[in-house]
Design a protein around this nucleic acid. Structure first.
Lengths: 114, 114
DNA sequence: CAGAATCCGCTACGATACTG
DNA sequence: CAGTATCGTAGCGGATTCTG
């Protein structure tokens, strides 16, 4: 054998992950759901700076990717709730650990990012 | 107490991580380095579809974030090598585990993404 | 309160060509 | 082989407005 052109058996996995978590607020939205913040209005309060449009778009993408499910109670005034699916839950440990990693290296990183 | 407006102590960490790994090929570049693929030409071969321009841009960002270091041997023909810093190495387990996660749920995810 | 529709600026990325 | 410069494009996300 010569050389492996694509030595990255994980490459496909990387790309899938990248697509799934691609989006400015996806991590935080998933973490909100994990924290029990299930309603859009609550997310808007919990995440200063996010807009309703982006909440909807990114939640819908997460639903499309099978990480989130939606419950519409069809009441008036409207009430809906979003929940993590099992697949979504399986991603939470990564998110928390990555967030912790970011916190721990905040000093080093911020210097460079700012 | 009323309600915590920002219940996400990890929010800042999320944001830092998002900025650091933001980029289509960052995961794969970091994984390349971890695999010992240190030279740009080798990365180009290992990652079909990537361009030299993007390799340089994203590696420089990683350097700026302190995850990667560069060694220029100042020879002719030119030869340079990139390496993971300790900070960069500390991110590798996440990347591998996320790639594995993506691989494991490929079936579920691909249906939705395609 | 949930959410869809519209407009728009910014950036990332790809393609290409060029310098040492 | 390494790296830069330029151009064109698609998409993300912010602001705003409107509906049920």
């Amino acid at each position: 054998m010569y050389e492996r052109k694509i030595p990255l058996t994980l490459g496909c996995g990387f790309e899938l992950v990248r697509q799934v978590v691609n989006g400015k607020w996806k991590f935080m939205l998933l973490y909100c759901l994990h924290e029990g913040i299930t309603r859009p209005s609550a997310m808007e309060r919990a995440l200063p700076g996010i807009s309703r449009r982006v909440i909807n778009i990114q939640l819908n993408q997460l639903i499309g990717h099978g990480l989130v499910s939606k419950q519409d109670y069809e009441e008036k005034p409207p009430r809906v709730e979003y929940f993590l699916t099992d697949l979504g839950k399986s991603l939470i440990p990564f998110i928390i650990d990555l967030g912790t990693w970011g916190e721990e290296h905040k000093g080093t990183l911020q210097l460079n990012i700012v």
